[in-house]
């Protein structure tokens, strides 16, 4: 008689990463984010660290790990700006948590789902940052440009799909 084990889908699809990958990938993404706009200023529209947060969150499927990953990468990103610490930190914490939670319910290996997740989370991040700057920091000069933010989300999605496939190679099943 065949043996049946009670392994949930969550356990089946949970992945871990080598510590070097966990440390170096966000660092490389933040570094590229800082250097690429110097080569081609229009690339400032991208948010490579955000793609990293989404990837690690949906791969680990652990909301706590997702939140902490988002916070760390976000604060690290804030350190390179002249903005107060916490703007990217808060936005990416929320996204890390939500991405890890959504990872349970949808097939994150599917390209369409990955595109939808990246597009949606990019828009969510733009809205969150606008809210933080407009209301928490009470900066009346901040404006939300819907078309520009849609374009940003589209660009992030285009870059995220191949980047996800590249990062998939570093996944280790638990």
């Amino acid at each position: 008689m065949a043996e049946h084990s009670y392994t949930s889908r969550r356990e089946l699809d949970q992945y871990t990463f080598h510590p070097a990958v966990t440390l170096l990938t966000p660092l490389v993404l933040v570094l590229l984010q800082a250097v690429l706009p110097k080569v081609w200023p229009r690339l400032v529209i991208l948010d490579l660290p955000l793609i990293g947060v989404i990837f690690f969150a949906i791969a680990r499927r652990n909301p706590i790990a997702g939140t902490l990953t988002g916070t760390t990468i976000g604060l690290f990103q804030d350190g390179l700006t002249n903005l107060p610490f916490g703007i990217n930190g808060i936005a990416k914490s929320i996204i890390g948590y939500l991405a890890a939670s959504i990872g349970f319910t949808v097939d994150v290996e599917n390209v369409i789902n990955r595109m939808a997740l990246n597009f949606g989370f990019s828009l969510l991040q733009s809205g969150t940052i606008y809210g933080i700057m407009r209301w928490l920091l009470a900066d009346p000069t901040v404006r939300l440009h819907p078309l520009y933010e849609l374009l940003r989300a589209l660009c992030n999605t285009v870059v995220a799909v191949p980047l996800f496939f590249l990062l998939d190679r570093f996944k280790v099943r638990e």
Binding site: V30, Q33, A34, V35, P37, K38, V44, I45, D47, Q77, L80, T81, N82, L83, I87, N88, I129, M133
Partner: peptide, 12 residues
């Protein structure tokens, strides 16, 4: 390097 975001116009 740059700040990496269009919300902060700074360079290193």
């Amino acid at each position: 390097g740059t700040s990496g975001t269009d919300r902060s116009h700074t360079l290193w």
